[in-house]
Design a protein around this nucleic acid. Sequence first.
DNA 1: CATAGCCGCCTTTTT
DNA 2: GGCGGCTATG
Length: 710
Amino acid sequence: MPNSRYDKLTASQKEAVFHREGPLLVIAGPGSGKTRVITYRIAALIESGVSPHNICAITFTNKAAEEMRQRAISLGASGGAHISTFHSLCVRILRRYGADAGINPNFSIYDDSDQSGCMKQAIKDCELDTTNFSPARMLDAISALKNRLIDAETFEKEAEDFFSRMLAKIYIHYQGILTERNAMDFDDLLMKTATLLQNNSDVCRQLGERFRFLLVDEYQDTNHAQYRIARTIVSGHNNICVTGDPDQSIYRWRGADIRNILAFEKDWPDATVVRLEENFRSSANILKAADKLISFNRNRKEKKLIPVKPAGKDIAAAGFEDELEESEAVAREVKELIDEGTSPRDIAVFYRVNAMSRVLEEAFIKNKIPYQIVRGVEFYGRKEVRDMLAYLKVVVNPDDKTALLRIINNPARGIGKTTIDKISEYADSQKISFYEALKKASHIVSLSEATKAKQAVFISMIEQFKKDAGGKVAPLMERVFAESGLAESLKGEQNAIENVSEMISAAAQYDQQTEEPSLSDYLQQISLFSDVDSYDTNNERTALMTLHCAKGLEFENVFIVGVEEGLLPHEKTDTNDADDLEEERRLFFVGITRAKSSLHISYARYRTIRGQLMRTVPSQFLYELGIDFAEHSRQNNYSYDETDDAEITAPFAAGQLVRHKSFGTGVVKEFVDMGENSVVVVRFNTGQTKTLMVKYAGLSKMQDNAKGMH
DNA sequence: CATAGCCGCCTTTTT
DNA sequence: GGCGGCTATG
């Protein structure tokens, strides 16, 4: 019998919570209590006699996993259920069951910058140049292949055109480098798990028996590999419950496939579908705007957003001269809210790209507002943090040449490029790893005795660390920091030293919380951790973050800045590709629907991008929201009203703002009227000036609210 | 082999 | 406007 704590759930929520066996799809709009439903469902399953051990819940971030764990415990579900991201689950599976597939459990996990290093090497090995084969593009392409579970050999067989054949060659080399270094990138974790489950029916059966109930949150943002993993795990019992909202899918660029959620009922024909359409979060006005915006997406399923809260405040819109004024106005408004008694943590500022945080940060400092910037991976990107991690990775996984090369002469110990090349050559000729070659350096004839001695010191240091690497992590880190010479080399750099201390205290916490702490496990876990996961919601600080980070969160007061063409939608998105544009619109939708009671939207008429002052154009999404920002363009302040759409008029006069499908936005410098063959001279924001024939250029006119630039 | 200084590159979003 | 990588110099 369900107890009284379920009383506050709505009928639909209850339906999802108490659904027992078989596939369940929960289509849940923003603010509909979806995460709550999952947590209650975990509690309800346990209450009905299911062992926590048999439940696996997948969340989108580590942070969400941590919160869900705590909430489940507070509901009386005594812990024991597996709650983690897909990536963490995969690490567990690969460590435990990977041996048969030839996986060494001490594998390193490579992040973006490690990957890019390996990719550059791979391109070089293929004797191709990085101008035609840019590492970033190659990595994107390979990531897409891995998400679709296509390995290098399979792809090579299919590759026909020149580009595909080159890509296949690079893919093979890149993967070779990772394998040689006993390393996996993020996509490998998923692909190798999916393949393992597919090829090893025994592992598959064991996991199916272990996880008799699988719950996947944010299902709209799963990729194909994740879908396969989920599908295989539940193949024996079909007890899968997924929740998600197609309108909040914002990770297509990373391989997320919205079709997973759209096709759920086809994949599991006997699925129960529950819709959660009531919104308990936002005021009716905010929802009205969100609904208006998202209705411009054509490739979607209609969904209602039913407000529970009253209309509330109007949405505040504002146009500013530049990003300095915008930031200053946001800071002042935030300050006012705080002075009126709002807690700083009930306020958040969202932007499209991380680079926009700097100017906001300065304004917040100036106005003495407590804030925290929630950033992707900044902490783990710091030099000193990477250096420390590289030492630890080498201790656990000596094959990790990426890490080894990073530390071998850092701090400087007289082992330079020439020496490294000689050792590399020796390693290749002897078919041994770089680390093994280093150990046998005394056999390398071409090296001087002095150099050999330096290497011996380095090797014996690492070997000593290895001996002491069992058990707790933090003490070893202290030793590594001191004895590697890193501490000495960072002397005077207080920030850097503090970052390392922060790492060590995090490790100490891990040591305490983990039954059997191990360095290998620790390194793998934190590789999957990002700064977003350490966002402290109990802190009395206003959060600044990207719109992507804002997913899954909610705030009383929300500010969205830089709502301009080129930023939102971002210039990198192909506005002719409806799917790309629709994803940007969803991103804005996600941002808007984070707000509970007040929402402030702004843009700047000029913005400095990469050190260059650019004239900007308000986002087309603002028109769609029905906000008449022209009204506010002369007053640099937020004002609260909503009127009809602004008009777009006038011919190609000098000063007219226009958009070109490949050059982007620009300003008309000159118009030569030659009837049908009229020519227009446009200076584009990219810096180039083009003379175009109107009839071919396909220019669209844009609203101009800016003052002249002279 | 180390260091400083310069050039040229890129720059969306993140597990 | 920031960083990595390269080069020239000590």
